[in-house]
Nucleic acid binder design. Sequence first.
DNA 1: GTGGTGATGGGACCTTGTCTCATCACTGTA
DNA 2: TACAGTGATGAGACAAGGTCCCATCACCAC
Lengths: 189, 189
Amino acid sequence: MGRWEPNARHRLSLSALELFVQQGYESTTVAEIAERAGLTKSTFFRHFTDKREVLFGSDELSRLLSDAITGAPDSATPIAAVAAALDATAVVFDPQRRPWAQQRQLVIAGNSELRERELLKGATLAAVMADALHGRGVPDPTASLAAELAGLALRGALARWVDPANAREFTDLAGEELAGLRAASLALD
Amino acid sequence: MGRWEPNARHRLSLSALELFVQQGYESTTVAEIAERAGLTKSTFFRHFTDKREVLFGSDELSRLLSDAITGAPDSATPIAAVAAALDATAVVFDPQRRPWAQQRQLVIAGNSELRERELLKGATLAAVMADALHGRGVPDPTASLAAELAGLALRGALARWVDPANAREFTDLAGEELAGLRAASLALD
DNA sequence: GTGGTGATGGGACCTTGTCTCATCACTGTA
DNA sequence: TACAGTGATGAGACAAGGTCCCATCACCAC
């Protein structure tokens, strides 16, 4: 791979995940990742603000969730709106990406810096959803709560989706998780 | 302050917050913090694993929450148990600590590394509460949901408690937040 | 006063992340 | 074909975070 090959960013992501899986996140240096992608440390930091960010580079999810909530019918309740948002994530959780997502989740689970970053991304998604709900006229704390529940459902569905003993559609899992949380909220006392 | 003064850890925390307030988190080096406390960089990292950790050094909250849930009467519902846990945090949120907490929250709000760490601590608290609920025989997702709601209430109450235009007791605020979330969960659809 | 113990100081070292400047490939234009 | 402009990359210096090892110091027990 020469200096001017295309998709530098994508090559860096792939190289990073491969190395993290092989030798662990902490024992992999940015220079190594860049070298494997045929690039240098300088270029790595031009594409990613951080070493952690190479595993979290897309905000596609954010846009999908926000657009789905904004575009839901006026008659949709807050829960129905976030349920529609979860359905809209199907393109991201394409079955073809499952092996990649599995490895990625394993790496993240093994390092607390990465778990921190994952929490930050999750909090950002919840904030985006809450904002979109505000745009529909849903007041707080209802909007925040609905967004938070959707975030929990998404997290839970992701955990089940990457489980090798599982071959379900992501949106089905997310729907189940959300329904389970709704039911549980009636059993709190 | 000489080399063998006591309370090195506490001195480091105070020096750190003072410097962060004066000149910002990022423009403060660990060496500066240590010097102000009459110590060196080596000693700083013996007391704190991280630069960030100097603002999050205690897990008192974790123990209080866990013990309160475990010690709640058998008849207590999950919500009642976490409400008792929030009440048990009164000692941490002593009015005397409010000025300190205000400065601390401002510093954290101004830096995304610190917000990340705060999210990690919050997630840890929620996990601890969920575990304590499991110990009472509360199954998932009820336990996780109750823990998550308590976490949201705690975060909301903290935001209001440090607001200068506010002089309420922390536990009152936390109770209100939790009640508000309970009510909101009935308005989701 | 002698030796043990635990906290501290000092400094070498590696990595992350920033910055600046040179270099290269590709483009359009004459 | 020549040439200038543009944008991505390379190279290397640099500051700071964080780890590690070893010397040093205060205190304590005997």
